[in-house]
Nucleic acid binder design. Structure first.
Lengths: 246, 246
DNA sequence: GCAAAAGTGTTCCGACTACACCCATGC
DNA sequence: GCATGGGTGTAGTCGGAACACTTTTGC
């Protein structure tokens, strides 16, 4: 890690800060029935910002890794098997948390943020009867505690980037899915500012990372659609290569 | 920031971790005379890892922001005016720093890493006579203290990405530069796995963000080259748009 | 003149766009 | 049949890759 600055003998510089480290997560999900992009918010119970909505978060415990901490919050709020999780950014300026003022000796509160995309269908919210917890459609998000709006914005940008250039969509789609399912996922997250369905089809198939299971599925009227499966082996050699999914 | 998990009254969960927060920086520079990509390393003076090379870093002081801390280390090591700096990633697993074991009560050491690209010509190393400090060509980097090799790898990846998709090259080139200067910068960082000079020229000029000053410069034999200047106004509307510089 | 470096132009080809069109199902 | 959604094909266009060629300097 780090060392002090290199003044030789007596260190008469200002003292080191002491930190509590929090992990806050921007947890996204796509409701494919209503084509809405959702973010998970929780109502704060304690000061500061008691009664306001915020991103789910926690303070890091002894012996716990940052990512482990992120997974813990996630599992405390929702039951979900399939997800993508990655670190976002660390916010750590002084005075970003009102609790810093209260404490006599200057403890700082730092937030390592994560962003997650979870499979909506299986994501079951864990209501403990006391806490408010809810999926909010992006665009209907209320004002948030701390600097959480900033974190959310940052997470949304990252989500769109990841979706375009990484196969995270397949972490959140069911094992087998139609190409239309995939297309809908992309449009709800990215907006429909890209290729029409027909061109999307051909391009994504040309990548060669989807395998047709041959199984057909019928959703009401219309011709039944083929179910596809993400082919991890075929994708492996393409990893780290610049790929555009949308 | 964050709250605890939502158990109601008594918190009998494992206690919170206490953190020292360090900032470690991957500072790159391009020696355009020798076409080498360099990274700044310092020799550690104190335990742990005393006598080993490491990334320049420091522990965050009271009242100091993370970015401020990164700038402080930078200014303690080199004198440089023009640079690009951005946060990289936060490494914070338990047991990543040997000092955690020494302390009786489990203080954790967390590293928020930054990456910087500085203008080589004006970067003057501040030798304090005691500390080793040196530019190492990438590929000749010795084994590093802590998990600094991992941070360096991460920084290198980010550097290449940023160079391809952001105009950070112009933060580090002189005010006026030839297209060949620009091309050399790209090739030394990215390798010459992209367009030849002639295609690079036309593509970068078509972006419309470089303005020809009309001034010619002659470097030995050959036809004199035009000096160009980065046009920040012309670039402004393109910001946030996906742009490929290489 | 000749070598060296800067700068221009041309040809080829693959990829993306915008459609029009065919196919298989429910009712 | 016909509406509905799935799936295929094609013509036009844009942009990058490769490379030949011209221009302007030093010597």
């Amino acid at each position: 890690m780090s060392e002090r600055s290199q003044r030789k003998p007596t260190d008469l510089v200002s003292p080191l800060a002491e930190f509590k480290v929090g992990v806050d997560s921007v947890i996204f999900s796509v409701d494919s029935d209503q084509n809405r992009l959702l973010v998970l918010l929780v109502m704060r119970q304690d000061a500061p910002f008691s009664g306001e909505w915020s991103l789910p978060g926690t303070l890091v415990r002894q012996g716990e890794s940052l990512e482990g901490s992120a997974y813990r919050v996630l599992s405390e709020k929702i039951r979900v098997e399939n997800l993508y999780l990655e670190q976002l950014y660390t916010f750590g300026g002084p005075n970003r948390d009102p609790r810093e003022a209260e404490t006599s000796y200057g403890v700082r509160y730092l937030s390592v943020s994560y962003f997650a995309l979870v499979r909506f269908a299986e994501a079951e919210l864990i209501a403990d009867g006391v806490n408010g917890i809810a999926w909010y459609p992006l665009g209907q998000v209320p004002s948030l505690a701390f600097d959480h709006q900033q974190i959310l914005d940052y997470g949304y940008r990252r989500l769109r980037n990841k979706l375009e250039y990484s196969p995270i969509a397949f972490d959140v789609l069911p094992e087998m899915f139609t190409l239309n399912d995939l297309y809908q996922l992309y449009t709800t997250v990215l907006g429909d500012h890209f290729a029409d369905y027909s061109n999307f089809r051909t391009r994504i198939l040309k990548l060669g990372i989807l395998s047709d299971t041959g199984i057909k599925t019928s959703r009401g009227a219309g011709r039944p659609a083929s179910l596809y499966r993400f082919d991890a082996e075929a994708f492996a050699p393409l990893k780290n290569k610049p790929l555009v999914f949308a």
